[in-house]
């Protein structure tokens, strides 16, 4: 492969990894609090649509980002309400969220199909962008990529070093113990499930505001589900999530790189790669032993009520 193709493949990995990163970080927050939200795909779609609609009507990209996060957060709060207050099966509720997010975005988004809007442009970071090879890949990107660079370490720091992160981890791991120490389990779960939704919305918005500058129905194409798998891959660690997201980003742009070099693999087969790779990752990370060893939030998916202990 020539130098140019290599550079553009790596740059593509960062770009297509960024929406995965946001969604994965969001899901890590929700799952760390003990709430399994399988609706990432739906929340990303709502985010992508809302972001596009707002950017198209106002031409204000940052307002679009905020709106996308807000819209996805509203969906997430629905999941939070039925999972936390009504204590329903979180799997089913998550699926419902996917239907709702995909449906609403497709429904309201139909009239935006096929329209171009503004999108984020690359901003060179002085000095850093001058680093040979790497600089251009990492530091000549759009602002949301930089948000991702900062957000992952920040969430890591928040989780492991601050009091609130400690509370969050305790709620996901031992809600009874957290409750006894005066931590409001339900409130904590609400907050992080909704924040998780907002981040999924940000991931979706990246697709329609930076990765492309248009809205296509179901444009997430399973990225929300891949994010759920990435959470396991990253063993609930924000820094590993960064690694996983860019790795997966790399795999999904591999096809473009291969196309340019004229490999005989047909495009429809190459489109399978991210999904095949996801299955492969699950094969190696799913065993109970692995989960126990690396500290999955043990109360994940289990509703908490003070009077019912098993």
């Amino acid at each position: 492969m020539s130098h140019d193709i290599l550079t553009s493949t790596f740059a593509g990995a960062i770009r297509s990894g960024t929406p995965l990163l946001f969604a994965t970080l969001g899901e890590i927050l929700a799952e760390r609090s003990g709430i399994l939200n399988l609706g990432v795909e739906g929340m990303m779609l709502i985010g992508a649509f809302t972001g596009f609609a707002v950017s198209y009507t106002t031409s204000n990209l940052w307002l679009a980002v905020v709106a996308a996060m807000g819209a996805a957060a509203i969906l997430a709060s629905l999941h939070a309400f039925v999972s936390i207050t009504l204590k329903v099966n979180q799997v089913v509720s998550g699926l419902a969220l996917v239907f709702l997010g995909a449906g609403l975005s497709g429904f309201w988004g139909q009239r935006f199909v096929g329209i171009q809007s503004v999108s984020f442009v690359n901003v060179k970071i002085p000095l850093l962008a001058e680093i040979p090879f790497v600089g251009n890949i990492l530091f000549n990107r759009d602002p949301l990529v930089y948000v991702g660079y900062v957000l992952a370490p920040f969430i890591w720091w928040y989780l492991y070093k601050t009091k609130y992160g400690m509370n969050l981890r305790a709620v996901g791991e031992a809600p009874g113990a957290a409750d006894a120490r005066g931590i409001n389990v339900s409130l904590t779960r609400y907050i992080y499930t909704i924040m998780g939704g907002a981040l999924a919305g940000l991931g979706g918005a990246y697709l329609s505001l930076a990765y492309t500058s248009m809205w296509v129905e179901n444009m997430t194409a399973g990225r929300g589900w891949i994010a759920v798998v990435l959470v396991i891959f990253a063993i609930w660690d924000p820094l590993l999530a960064m690694l996983g997201a860019y790795l997966f980003g790399g795999i999904s742009v591999l096809q473009f790189g291969l196309q340019v070099t004229q490999t005989p693999i047909p495009p429809n087969i190459m489109k399978m790669f991210p999904y095949l790779f996801t299955v492969l990752v699950m094969l190696f990370t799913s065993s109970e032993k692995m989960k126990k060893r690396f500290g999955a939030p043990s109360a994940l998916g289990v509703p908490y009520s003070r009077e019912e202990k098993t």
Partner: peptide, 26 residues
């Protein structure tokens, strides 16, 4: 009216069903 209406309806039905079940159980 876009066909996605079906998905919206499905999502709504699923949500109201699980909420309804919760109300019956609790």
């Amino acid at each position: 009216i876009p066909f996605s209406l079906v998905s919206v309806f499905e999502g709504l039905v699923l949500f109201s069903l699980i909420s309804g079940e919760a109300l019956l159980r609790y």
